[in-house]
């Protein structure tokens, strides 16, 4: 029962992250919303699996997947942001500042 509640919270965060993927105006803001919300939502689902089964084989595997997913998502986000800035994709109309443009070779 507790596991169902945790999984429901996770899916709610996943939904908000995907909604941000649709609503936000440029690549950088989409990545902000999608990376944070979807990573935390999926970690929450895996935590629900751990609560459902307890510390047996499958629960420990779910616990290991959490830091793995965490580092994969953050490093992927760095790589995508830096790549799209180097590829010359502009920040959206609402942006106020871009310090990176001056130092980038």
């Amino acid at each position: 029962m507790v596991s169902t509640i945790i999984i429901t919270i996770g899916i709610a965060f996943n939904f908000l992250g995907c909604l941000g993927l649709i609503r936000f105006p440029d690549v950088y803001n989409r990545l902000q919303s999608a990376t944070k919300c979807v990573t935390l939502g999926t970690c929450s689902i895996l935590l629900g699996v751990l609560v459902h089964y307890g510390f047996v084989e499958v629960g420990v595997k779910a616990l290991i997947a959490i830091p793995l997913l965490f580092f994969a998502a953050t490093v992927g986000a760095h790589a995508l942001v830096r790549g799209s800035h180097i590829a010359g994709i502009k920040l959206g109309d609402k942006s106020v500042k871009d310090d990176y443009k001056e130092v980038e070779k």
């Binding site: 596991s3 999984i7 996770g10 899916i11 996943n14 992250g17 995907c18 993927l21 690549v27 989409r30 990545l31 999608a34 990376t35 979807v38 990573t39 939502g41 999926t42 689902i45 895996l46 629900g48 699996v49 459902h52 499958v58 779910a62 997947a65 997913l69 998502a73 992927g76 986000a77 995508l80 790549g83 799209s84 590829a87 994709i89």
Partner: peptide, 26 residues
Amino acid sequence: PTVADRMVGIDIFGILVVGICAIMAI
């Protein structure tokens, strides 16, 4: 509209599939 948007979509799709696998395991 740009290539980077499509790549963000693919990245997030990959993370969602992990969640599907975890729920199907239960």
